[in-house]
Amino acid sequence: MTQEFLRSSIPLSISGTSVTISALCRQGPKAPVLLLHGFGSTKEDYADIVRHGVFEGRAFAAYDAPGCGETDCADLTTVDIPFLLDTAAAVAGHFWFERFHLVGHSMGGLTALMLSSQLPQRVLSFINIEGNIAPEDCFLSRQIDQYPSDSAEQFFAEFIERALHAPAYASALYSSSLRHKVRADAVPSIFRSMVSLSDNGDLMRKFLGFPFPRMFMYGEQNSNLTYLSHIESKGVELAEIPNCGHFPMYSNPVAMWKAIGDFIERAESTSRKVLRVTTTPR
């Protein structure tokens, strides 16, 4: 069984800024998965991919975004969604992922959406785990405007305290590691770009226009998102994770991984059927 992963350190220059990416990766014969974590999380959110048999033999890469985890970034104030988009494209290129499945959570879901828009011919499928596609999705990032502070450090400290008391599954667990997983100086530019794109970036049209299979995954606590029936009617598969809020990898990882694995297998099965039909000689 090809279950274990390797650690990888990847030196990059992103928009003139030196970055050293910390990644977990594995090679394998099956089409790879590129996994993008959310704000306040790290690549280890996805390390358990190797513990689920449905992914046996599948290559993957998960990495710490600049400003997060063990990744080093020379200028944290440059980190925003366009910067993270360029990083994701560079990481995919580093691992020679010619075509790949995309999984992105929250901030990572928005980054993955922008990457899909830039490289649609290379994406096999996209699993969006509560990534931003509408203004209502900025319940975390919009706090940069709702709770102005004198410094990035002060804002982040108060953000952590609010997360601790938020009435949602896994919020306290999430808050407990934020200070260890995120550099405060990266927070304002990340949040402002997330809000700007969610309000003005035409994200819904982009998401619904992709030519490959798409899933939108959400916790049952967020089943009141107003656009769910709309995106389902446009061909997006919905996956509601029970006993869960915004963080399925913390609250219900077994259900999350099953939904991801089953969806990727269906996407590849559909692709093979289409290929057979289009290549069958008349």
Rank of each mutant, 00 (worst) to 15 (best):
V277W: 03
T17R: 10
G209K: 04
G16H: 07
E44D: 12
S171E: 10
M256W: 04
S196W: 12
A59P: 00
S15E: 13
H37S: 09
A31G: 04
L178N: 09
L85N: 10
F100I: 05
S189V: 00
F39T: 14
P211C: 03
L203R: 05
P11M: 06
I21F: 00
A255K: 08
A259N: 03
E56M: 07
S106F: 09
E4F: 08
I264S: 00
F216T: 05
G28K: 02
H52S: 06
G109K: 02
K234N: 15
K206H: 03
V277L: 13
R272P: 00
L197S: 07
F156L: 08
P120V: 01
E158Y: 10
T87F: 01
V195D: 01
C138K: 10
A47K: 10
V182A: 01
M217A: 15
A168H: 12
Q118C: 04
R51F: 02
T71R: 04
P32I: 04
V277N: 01
I133Y: 00
L173E: 15
K258S: 12
D199Q: 10
L6F: 11
I190M: 14
A47L: 05
I160E: 12
P213A: 11
R266F: 02
S116F: 00
I21Q: 02
P120E: 07
I160T: 13
R192M: 03
I190F: 05
F155G: 07
L85T: 15
M114V: 01
T2K: 09
R266K: 13
I49P: 01
H94E: 03
D185P: 08
V33A: 15
S196H: 15
G57E: 02
G235F: 05
R99G: 01
E161P: 04
D48N: 15
I160S: 06
C68M: 13
P253S: 01
R205S: 15
L124I: 10
P82R: 07
V103N: 12
M1T: 07
V19F: 08
T280S: 11
T77Y: 03
A65H: 04
K30H: 13
L225Y: 13
Y46S: 03
A170H: 09
E44W: 01
K30Y: 12
F126K: 02
K234W: 00
L173K: 08
F207G: 09
V123C: 12
D262E: 13
T78H: 09
S18I: 05
N252M: 00
G67L: 05
I190S: 07
